[in-house]
């Protein structure tokens, strides 16, 4: 069934992402804090604490450091959401990646525009983060194209085998950079969870009130988008079974990321860049050569 040339499933995917993703993202953020607290032997906040934080931010006084920052943060949110819409509509994965990068650029520009030492440092580090994960993300797209002959996410749902069957090493490499993309320790170098660290709060130091709320909202959308990318590796033409497998795998990976977050100290940016590029180089090359032989 089609409406205006779009399949009904694309439309459902887009609407579900637009409406449900922030709620799931919020709950996952709350769960993250609970689990983290558990691992550290604390009780931790309530599950819905991120939601109450978000509400509180909306009620704060409207203050900003300049007149451009809000615009960049809005563009960040809009492009992250647009990128997710492309992905969950089953659209072109590369298009999704590029729009997501555009969103990331505006987040960085929001940090730079404040011209505050900490936000600036955070923005520079965020740029290095993008440079670190970009090769691996592009390799995911390349691997997907070489394995299935298409960049379209929807085509994975009619594939005989899940993508991870063809791209085992690229999947592992992707998990490595996923930690950078989610800004989890040891790669939380651009923004710290707590303000009393060496970079204060990094790139988000100068955001406040509604602007910071928008950043939180964008992060929730981002989380769901990146978990979607993870799930993409394990779907096949298996109907609802494939869907359940994808969700379970995504949640397991999410838990795994929290575990990593709590067990590693922050790396230096050089270590992040070198390691991420080595992983991309080795995993990408070996996996693509493997693809050429099967």
């Amino acid at each position: 069934m089609e409406i205006f040339g779009f399949s009904i499933w694309s439309i459902i995917g887009v609407i579900a992402f637009l409406v449900i993703a922030p709620f799931i993202g919020c709950i996952l953020a709350g769960l993250d804090r609970k689990i983290t607290a558990g691992m550290q032997g604390r009780v931790g906040p309530k599950l819905l604490q991120p939601w109450w934080d978000f509400r509180k931010l909306l009620a704060k006084e409207d203050a900003t450091v300049n007149g451009a920052q809000d615009l960049y943060v809005w563009l960040y949110l809009i492009f992250i959401v647009l990128s997710g819409m492309v992905f969950f509509a089953g659209g072109n994965f590369l298009l999704c990646v590029f729009i997501q990068t555009l969103g990331a650029l505006f987040f960085i520009l929001a940090g730079y525009s404040s011209r505050s030492p900490y936000a600036d440092l955070g923005a520079e580090r965020e740029t290095v983060q993008v440079m670190s994960y970009e090769p691996m993300v592009l390799l995911v797209a390349i691997g997907m194209f070489m394995a299935t002959g298409s960049f379209y996410v929807a085509d994975l749902l009619s594939a005989e085998m899940p993508l991870v069957r063809y791209l085992p090493l690229i999947f592992i490499g992707f998990l490595y950079v996923l930690t950078i993309k989610l800004r989890k320790s040891p790669f939380d170098i651009s923004m710290a969870q707590h303000a009393h660290q060496e970079i204060v709060r990094g790139i988000v130091t100068e955001f406040s009130g509604r602007t910071l709320a928008l950043v939180e909202l964008s992060h929730w959308y981002e989380t769901i988008l990146f978990l979607g990318w993870t799930g993409m590796f394990v779907v096949w033409a298996g109907g609802w079974v494939a869907g359940v497998v994808a969700v379970v795998v995504a949640l397991v990976i999410w838990f795994f990321e929290i575990w990593i977050d709590n067990n590693f100290a922050r790396f230096k940016w050089e270590t992040m860049l070198r390691s991420a590029w080595w992983v991309a180089l080795v995993a990408g090359t070996v996996n693509i050569v493997y693809l050429l032989f099967i």
């Binding site: 007149g67 990068t101 740029t127 090769p135 592009l138 693509i288």
Partner: peptide, 27 residues
Amino acid sequence: LMLLVFGSAATFMFWTKWLGKILAIAN
């Protein structure tokens, strides 16, 4: 393919830091 993906990442780096510099606002 391998050289392309790393080159793209480097391209992002050097343009973004320049762009950030000119868009900074000192008030």
